[in-house]
Write a protein that binds this DNA or RNA. Structure first.
Length: 484
RNA sequence: GGCCCCAUCGUCUAGUUUGGCCUAGGACACCAGGUUUUCAUCCUGGCGACUGGGGUUCAAAUCCCCAUGGGGUCACCA
């Protein structure tokens, strides 16, 4: 199996899902998964986007058995390096009369297309050069006239046995005599993809549904070459909110963006797998191994799916909530550092303390990137705590806030200094509220504001223990001054 | 517009191949309760779909036809 991306941009969600399904199928069936770079469009190909494809695939955990950076027996794995072979095949086809030179000018073709469109006809080649005498054709070519090479579509119809869609039949009269080789000798996609898939012994081609209409051209080419076409499976498209093919205008479609926005990697794989496929209709959260074990191309649904960003975020949360402290630390470090809260060195100097902090935020975030906003107050200097409007409003609702907080400070200071556990503090705190016949918010809202500056967040006793006596006391004292 | 593909809750889907077990299941979102010091988590409940019409059959979400709707594609891009 293979994927054959063109290095013309970053790896997008659609390519990521297509890659995942190809890879899962190959792994499930013990096949070989090949990565081939389709860089025939020199205008648009860029080296950095090639690197982005590699890192995107690796991030997803998709490894390739053959391809760039790993090698293999059927290389080279850049299409541009296989051009000699392409030209050789093109020449064979020309000799055999399965294709022909077309001397029509771009201008004439463009004008014709415009006219056809104006007449509401399907734009297509009119066959002007189709029956040119081969000798005449050769003479003109040798005289230096520029030409393209077109594939000669035979009469009849072409059947595609699609592993997702079943039997699809095309009338050959609907298939245009397409260009195989451009003016100047550069072969085109539909041609080279067949050459390379054949040469690389690809047996299964899974790709997006937008390629379905290309398939008869390719099947016919395999026939002309005397080769057996691979099995095709056309995957349903991933759609934007408006039901149209997912693209930039639906927001971010670059895989790297989700990584940067702090989505769980495993959740990303899981969610991508759920677009057009389900494990059993019940299980939403499943591992890559489960995907590989269960994946069959015939189970892929035919209808396109609208990409639900809400559910994606939910799924990320499901994974984040299940991570071990060490995993969480690994994933959150860069976000904490980037937020300017701590340095990498400070975090690694006391990993246990960092993990304890993350534990306080874990169930409150769905993306790693939300961690700084959730537990950032822990790492701020005591006098740098900012009171959110809502937090301060909550605290000020209570007219007795200062005396309650003051009294509580007297109670908690020695206990903190004595190293009471959060549980001990919790009991003492509740007893304090009960003795004074207070409602919980009377103590907890001012206390939360003083300690965190936020209206919501982790358990206050856990926070105080983490902060330690000095810092906790300083923040409460500060609250006493600021909440006057 | 031609050709091709598709059609179950707002969304992702199970069920369709092998018609009855489907008074259509799960999940996200939403709404309402509960747990809780807050937020979040968690728990419970609710809302909510077989596009329409014809057939075939004892029986159709499932098979057939038509209609409608949506999508893809019509390059010397890939």
């Amino acid at each position: 199996m293979r994927i054959a991306p063109s290095p013309t941009g970053t790896i997008h969600l659609g390519l990521a899902r297509t890659s995942l399904f190809n890879w899962a199928y190959a792994r499930h069936h013990g096949g070989t998964f090949v990565l081939r770079i389709e860089d025939t469009d020199k205008e648009r190909s860029r080296a950095d986007s090639e690197a982005a494809i590699f890192s995107g695939l690796r991030w997803l955990g998709i490894d390739w058995d053959e391809g760039p950076e790993v090698g293999g027996d059927l290389g080279p794995y850049h299409q541009s390096e296989r051009i000699d072979r392409h030209l050789l095949v093109a020449d064979q086809l020309l000799q055999a009369g399965r294709s022909y030179r077309c001397f029509c000018s771009r201008e004439r073709l463009d004008a014709m297309r415009t006219e056809q469109e104006a007449r509401k006809e399907t734009p297509r080649y009119d066959g002007t050069c189709r029956e040119l005498d081969p000798a005449e054709s050769l003479r003109r070519a040798e005289a230096g006239e520029s030409f393209t090479v077109r594939f000669r579509i035979p009469e009849g119809s072409t059947v595609v046995e699609d592993l997702v869609r079943g039997t699809v039949t095309f009338d050959n009269s609907e298939v245009d005599d397409w260009v195989m080789v451009r003016q100047g000798g550069n072969p085109t996609y539909n041609f080279v993809v067949v050459c390379d898939d054949a040469d690389m012994q690809i047996t299964h081609v899974f790709r997006g549904e937008e390629h379905l209409v290309n398939t008869p051209k390719q099947v016919l080419l395999y026939e002309a070459l005397g080769l057996k076409a691979p099995h095709f499976g056309h995957l349903p498209l991933m759609l934007g909110k408006d039901g149209k093919k997912l693209s930039k205008r639906h927001g971010s479609v670059a895989l790297s963006q989700y990584r940067e926005e702090g989505y769980s990697r495993d959740a990303t794989v899981n969610f991508l797998a759920r677009q057009g496929w389900a494990l059993d209709g019940e299980t939403e959260i499943f591992s890559v191994q489960q995907l590989v074990d269960a994946f069959e191309i015939g189970d892929v649904s035919k209808a396109g799916s609208i990409f639900d960003f809400d559910k994606f975020a939910w799924m990320s949360g499901e994974y984040v909530h299940r991570e071990s402290p060490a995993e969480l630390a690994e994933h959150c470090t860069e976000f904490m550092v980037e937020a300017g809260l701590v340095t990498r060195e400070e975090l690694s100097a006391d990993p246990a303390r960092f993990e304890a902090a993350l534990l306080l935020g874990q169930e409150r975030v769905r993306l790693y990137s939300e961690m700084p906003a959730t537990i950032g107050f822990l790492y701020m200097a005591d006098d740098a705590i900012e009171y959110e409007e809502k937090a301060e409003k909550n605290a000020r609702k209570h007219d007795d806030r200062l005396e309650v907080l003051g009294a509580y400070l007297e109670l908690v200071t020695p206990r903190l200094q004595a190293g009471d556990s959060a549980e001990e503090l919790r009991e003492a705190g509740k007893a304090f509220v009960k003795e004074r016949e207070l409602k919980f918010p009377q103590l907890f809202q001012p206390l939360r504001c003083a300690l965190t500056g936020k209206a919501g967040g982790p358990d206050l006793f856990d926070i105080m223990v983490w902060l330690g006596p000095q810092s906790a006391v300083a923040r409460i004292e500060q609250g006493l001054r600021r909440l006057i």
